[in-house]
Simulated assay, not measured.
Amino acid sequence: MAIAFTCTVTDCGHRQGHIFSKRSYEKGIVIVTCSSCKNRHLIADHLGWFQNLTGDGANVTIEQLAKAHGVPLTKGRVGESEVLEVAGQDSVESTTNFASAS
């Protein structure tokens, strides 16, 4: 799997992509580091490490968080890989708190 997104850290705004396993996205934890500012962004948590994001300790993914915050996210395929595309910087600006893991 892969994700493309714009870092929401103030004064960063770096557009980037990351690759991770489907198993970790569906059953584990995925945290990616911005290649520009080095901030970490939570993509999926199925082990309950970030229970504060759901309030009830339920599993959470970037898809659920984006939907809850009204941020456009599209899912597609490139070859054999699933790709998540989070909207550009203007739409993601309000999601700094939910996407940031550090």
Rank of each mutant, 00 (worst) to 15 (best):
S100T: 13
A66R: 08
Y25H: 11
N52Q: 06
V71S: 07
Y25G: 02
V71H: 03
S81T: 05
H46I: 02
V9N: 07
K67T: 09
I62C: 09
K38G: 02
N52Y: 02
L53R: 06
I62F: 08
V86Q: 07
V86H: 07
T8P: 13
T96V: 11
G88K: 11
Q89S: 12
V9L: 00
E82L: 09
D56Y: 05
R23T: 06
C7S: 10
E82A: 04
S102P: 12
E63L: 09
G28L: 00
G88V: 00
V32S: 11
S102C: 06
S21C: 00
T74P: 09
F20S: 08
D11C: 13
T95R: 05
L84A: 10
F98G: 01
R23G: 02
M1Q: 10
I3Q: 06
V71K: 08
P72V: 05
C34Y: 04
T6Y: 10
L73F: 10
V78E: 14
A66Q: 01
M1N: 04
E93N: 04
H41W: 08
C34T: 03
P72H: 06
T33V: 08
L53F: 09
L73S: 01
L65W: 04
Q16Y: 00
A58S: 14
S21K: 03
C12Q: 06
H69M: 05
N52K: 03
C37Q: 06
A4H: 12
A58W: 03
A4N: 11
H41D: 08
V9A: 07
T6C: 07
A4P: 02
G76D: 13
A101P: 01
G13W: 09
R15C: 13
H69C: 02
S24Y: 03
C12D: 07
H69I: 02
Q64P: 04
A58T: 11
T61Y: 00
N52A: 05
E85K: 15
A2T: 04
Q89E: 11
A87S: 14
K22R: 13
V60C: 05
G57M: 00
N52W: 00
T8K: 03
G57Y: 00
K75S: 15
S35R: 13
G17H: 10
A66L: 01
I31W: 12
I3F: 07
C37V: 12
V9T: 12
A101M: 03
K75L: 14
L47E: 11
G79N: 01
T61H: 02
G76Y: 09
I62T: 05
E80S: 13
H41L: 07
V92M: 11
A44G: 08
A58I: 05
G70D: 07
D11L: 15
H46K: 03
A101F: 00
G28N: 05
G13L: 04
K75E: 13
R40M: 10
R23W: 01
H41K: 03
A87D: 11
V92T: 12
I62D: 06
E85F: 10
S91D: 15
E85H: 15
Q16W: 01
E26M: 11
H18W: 12
G17W: 12
V83Q: 07
G17V: 03
A44F: 04
G88N: 09
Q89H: 13
R15L: 15
G79I: 02
R77P: 01
E85C: 08
N59I: 04
V60N: 05
